[in-house]
């Protein structure tokens, strides 16, 4: 479903991603972990072209994302319309929810289907209601985002992304801005999606969640993939010293907080 080869991203002089290779099969859940500044979020944002990458390729469902190869073999940026079309098939959930504060919960969800896909208003509403039921917020359809808890807002954001019926869902540290007691309700929704067979790439610090839900965990450090594999192997027997240290910091943090 997603194939990344030699992905390079620079911000000015600073290279954030040094040639990433990554494959995500249909229905697979891949969790990306790593210290802050390792390029996790940048990698994820390259997967829907919110960041334009400088080298390498990102192929989603068979099509090169953001660029097209011209007759002369050189890459040119795709038109805005094509890029928008690709993005509409890739759902993204942000750390800070990014809901539309001037729209009700229902309108947040129906806006894109109505305006981008031309879905009829009543159909869009029905789909939105079903999605809200799925994330446990059917009773909040007419509420405005500002009146919801952080956990509820994030669940609406997930429903909003799902309403476009994406082929892939990207999650960018979606529980990092939540009150600790609200993390669970969001993870439950994500776990349900994984069980439904959704293809997901998740940037997260929730190690326990990664252990339970991920088919594969990718450890990113300094803009490079240092290790990847099934969570059980990776967490139990990290082969690199960096991952070992990273995981130890987590377990220590966990012990301290208990």
């Amino acid at each position: 479903m997603i194939r990344v080869r030699g992905l390079v991203k620079r911000f000015g002089q600073h290279t954030v991603l040094h040639g990433i290779d990554l494959d995500v099969a249909r229905g697979q859940v891949v969790v990306v972990i790593g210290p802050s500044g390792s390029g996790k979020t940048t990698l994820l944002r390259c997967l829907n072209f919110l960041e334009e990458y400088d080298d390498g390729e990102v192929v989603v469902d068979g099509a090169l994302l953001g660029y097209r190869r011209g007759a002369d073999g050189r890459l040119g940026r795709r038109s805005e319309e094509e890029i928008a079309k690709s993005r509409s098939e890739i759902g993204m959930v942000f750390q800070s929810f990014n809901l539309f504060p001037h729209k009700s919960v229902l309108d947040n969800i129906t806006l894109a289907p109505i305006y981008i896909k031309g879905v009829r208003r009543d159909v869009a509403k029905q789909v939105a209601t079903e999605l809200l039921t799925k994330v446990g917020l059917a009773h909040k359809a007419d509420a405005y985002p500002g009146t919801l808890s952080s956990g509820q807002q994030q669940r609406v954001a997930i429903a909003r992304a799902l309403a476009m019926q994406p082929k892939v869902m990207l999650f960018d540290e979606v529980t990092s801005a939540l009150d600790p007691e609200l993390v669970g309700e969001v993870l439950t929704v994500m776990r349900g999606l994984a069980e439904d067979g959704m293809t997901m790439v998740i940037v997260s610090h929730e190690m326990q969640f990664a252990r339970e839900v991920a088919h594969r965990v990718v450890f990113l450090d300094g803009g490079r993939i240092l290790e990847e594999g099934p969570p059980k192997t990776l967490f139990r027997e990290p082969s690199s010293e960096r991952l070992h240290a990273f995981l130890r910091r987590f377990t220590e943090g966990y012990k301290l907080s208990v």
């Binding site: 990014n98 539309f100 001037h102 806006l111 894109a112």
Partner: peptide, 25 residues
């Protein structure tokens, strides 16, 4: 800015995202 990104990620073109989301906010 954040809402603009969300709108773009949903597949809106820049101009429509501006008109439907950013300017009203």
């Amino acid at each position: 800015r954040r809402q603009l990104e969300a709108a773009l990620a949903l597949g809106m073109r820049r101009w429509r995202a501006m008109r439907l989301v950013v300017v009203p906010i």
